[in-house]
Design a protein around this nucleic acid. Structure first.
Lengths: 231, 231
DNA sequence: GCATCCGTATTTAGATTCAAAATCTAAACT
DNA sequence: AGTTTAGATTTTGAATCTAAATACGGATGC
């Protein structure tokens, strides 16, 4: 109709993958809900084959679960899953900060990261919490992209996608944002000076701090609720 | 033929996945070689659909590469890839050792790991280098499985599979094996005592040491060859 | 009134078919 | 003889089709 589909520069599977992934991590599909093929086929004007391939890919990425002969479901993450994800992020940021500090262009990396922190500071002053959160994610995104290890980057993005399944992740804890920005700057300083050990320590400290405040907020919300249920 | 295929307890895709994966990591297919579907279909007595699904899964695992309209290939890892893999293993073992030392059952974990080290010592005395290597891999395998983070375990196994693509990984450096065993025992000691920091430090030291000797051996073998070519 | 059983409908898993893209072969031209 | 190009073959990527398994719903018996 309006799009003549000039050239299939990318495979239809990749197209379906991107569309379905954005639908899931945007929160359109609530956790636990069933993801079936036919509605997606009709919505995206594609055939079933690439859609199914994309669903299988997303299952391997951790943003979908498949049960034999029952289909795909959006996983409901437990607090144990959250703990695992944050632990992995701690290891990844620990390594990424060390690699960035040890790189020959560590000064340039620090400059780019510092720019992200500056944007964070701007949004913080205008109290735009959503934009601040985006910049926070982009900070780690950039750190993974610039540290020079593509496998670390891929793993980090997968964990980020899994984390986005938790819609209550907003983490609008009041005094938390300023502390997060301060911790980011500690990492950047160490990278700028080329101090690998110090950069790694600052990164792990940051993630530990984020996890701690998050678990506190969860405990506050459902104080007497079941401990390992979906959040 | 002789097997009537009693019950499809597992999906045909999983069956094809396991078969193809073992073929690849066993080294039957040399790096750079093309992996086509029809021979696999005939060899495994399956249809094309589950075989292709398995190939796509293996691509996401990192043991296959796919080029649009050109098929799947066994990747030829460069020294840069090896560096990335070892860096990731360093971060993973660092975290796994810390988690194991911090677990409430850290003593039991240490016992199981120490048993693997004892088997290593046995094979070392009988100069069975192949068996020693297997135990070395199983040591890290167990550490990842016992540390209590399933995502860490999955990522570690994927990296292990990628590493197996390098057939020259044998790493039959003479005095290296004793050193490796000593370093393993340092990790186990720290876990047994519940010293997280010390366990993480021992783990990173171990991986750094392994990577160092490996790079030395590579440099020795092809001294004047191109530096970032496949190994 | 409730539980169980059976039939139907939906949905996935797998098989087969179709078409487009790429590689390979070989002939023709320079 | 070397290069280029045209055709044939192979192989992937996608679509359609069939079968199996599960979930749902109503009817029937207790």
């Amino acid at each position: 109709m309006e799009s003549p589909d000039a050239f299939p520069r990318f495979s239809l599977t990749q197209e379906a993958y991107a569309a379905i992934r954005s639908m899931i991590i945007a929160g359109d599909l609530p956790p636990g809900s069933r993801v079936t093929v036919r509605p997606i086929v009709e919505k995206l004007n594609l055939s079933a084959t690439p859609v199914k391939a994309a669903l299988m890919a997303l299952e391997r990425e951790g943003v979908l679960e498949s049960k034999l002969h029952r289909g795909f479901f959006v996983p409901a993450l437990s607090t144990a899953d959250l703990r695992e994800i944050y632990e992995m992020r701690e290891a990844l940021d620990w390594l990424a900060a060390q690699l960035a500090a040890s790189a020959e262009n560590h000064a340039a990396i620090a400059t780019q990261l510092r720019a992200k922190c500056e944007q964070q500071r701007t949004y913080l002053k205008s109290s735009d919490v959503d934009a601040y959160r985006r910049m926070d994610l982009e900070f780690h995104h950039d750190l993974w992209a610039l540290c020079g290890n593509s496998r670390l980057q891929r793993t980090g993005e997968q964990l980020m996608d899994q984390m986005r399944l938790v819609n209550s992740l907003s983490a609008r804890v009041p005094g938390r944002v300023e502390q997060s920005l301060t911790e980011h700057l500690l990492i950047v300083d160490a990278i700028e000076k080329g101090l690998a050990e110090q950069a790694g320590a600052a990164a792990t400290q940051h993630i530990k701090s984020v996890l701690g405040t998050f678990l506190e907020s969860v405990n506050d919300e459902n104080a007497a609720a079941n401990g390992t249920e979906a959040v």
